[in-house]
Simulated assay, not measured.
Amino acid sequence: MNNHEIDFKLYGDDMQFVEVELDPDETVIAEAGSLMMMDENIRMETIFGDGSPDKGGLMGKLIGAGKRVITGESLFMTTFTNEGQGKKHVSFASPYPGKIIPMDLSELDGKLVCQKDAFLAAAKGVAIGIEFQKKVGAGFFGGEGFIMQKLEGDGMAFVHAGGTMHKRVLEPGETLRVDTGCLVAMTGNIDYNVDFVGGIKTAMFGGEGLFFATLKGPGTVWIQSLPFSRLASRVFAAAPQGGNKNKGEGSVAGGLFDLLGGDRR
């Protein structure tokens, strides 16, 4: 294997974290801010790029880093290396309620395409780049920032899905339409595109996004029931506006006082 071979264990149900077991000199890479805890003798280091084997020297690194910027990610990633004598553990937590999905790239023909914010961690050697969409305009404006990352290699990677995760296997020629925010990941052999929702009334008043992803088999797709953007919009809509923090917001009595111009002092 070209990638480091790591063992892992998942904990929890709706707020999961993954514990990665590292042998001496083994390394795992992760996005900044995903660390939960780690044993002693694990060295944490910020690196430029993803730590995968160099392709094209410095220019190749700069191009790879530029692709990460396009997806909204940082130029840098963090590596965790076991410099001790025995097995050590490092844990990474999911950013919001959902599931952590372990993906063995050696069983997925060496490539996985996923949403830009789905990647959590991976064995060192996994290359993380951008998957260019056939229709560039649709890719950038295809609802909730439909920019896909690609994970390439033969090691283990971990992606995160919001809410409940559903795995769907598509037969050759079988087509599935998915809200762009609900698509988590898919194997590299899936033929996909981003299409505009037909009908101006449906687009403007249907309550759904303006775009959906059209996926065509053969291959496997992973779908989430609760995209973070949908969760965030509902929280924002329910949040009190105007900073009225001391007026019993959310209560019937508070609403009546506001309506009647009552004074609570």
Rank of each mutant, 00 (worst) to 15 (best):
N2G: 13
D7K: 15
F8E: 06
F8T: 07
F8R: 09
Y11F: 11
M15F: 05
V20A: 04
P24I: 10
E26I: 00
T27M: 01
V28E: 02
E31C: 08
G33L: 00
S34C: 08
S34Q: 13
S34H: 13
M36H: 12
M37H: 01
N41R: 12
N41L: 10
F48V: 09
F48R: 09
G51N: 01
S52P: 05
D54I: 11
L58N: 06
M59Y: 00
K61N: 06
K67W: 05
K67Y: 09
I70Q: 15
G72W: 00
E73A: 15
L75E: 02
T78N: 12
T78H: 02
K88H: 15
H89A: 13
S91A: 15
F92L: 08
P95R: 04
Y96Q: 01
Y96S: 07
Y96N: 05
I100Y: 03
I101E: 06
M103Y: 04
L105W: 00
S106C: 10
L108R: 07
K111R: 15
L112H: 05
A122L: 04
I130S: 13
I130N: 04
E131V: 09
K134R: 09
K135V: 14
G137H: 06
A138V: 05
A138M: 07
F140C: 08
G143E: 11
I147M: 14
M148F: 11
Q149T: 14
E152T: 13
E152R: 03
F158G: 13
V159S: 02
V159R: 08
G163I: 12
G163P: 04
T164V: 15
M165Q: 08
H166P: 01
R168T: 13
V178H: 07
T180C: 14
M186I: 00
I190T: 08
I190L: 04
N193S: 15
D195E: 09
I200T: 00
K201D: 09
A203T: 11
G206H: 06
G207M: 04
G207V: 10
F211E: 02
F212Y: 15
A213C: 13
L215G: 00
G217D: 03
G219I: 01
V221L: 13
V221G: 14
W222L: 15
Q224E: 12
S225T: 14
L226I: 14
L226R: 11
F228R: 07
S229E: 05
S229L: 01
L231R: 07
F236E: 11
A238Y: 03
A238W: 06
G242Y: 05
G242R: 01
G243Y: 02
K245C: 04
K247Q: 15
K247F: 14
G248C: 12
G248Q: 14
S251D: 07
V252N: 07
D258M: 06
L260F: 11
L260A: 13
G261A: 09
R265K: 12
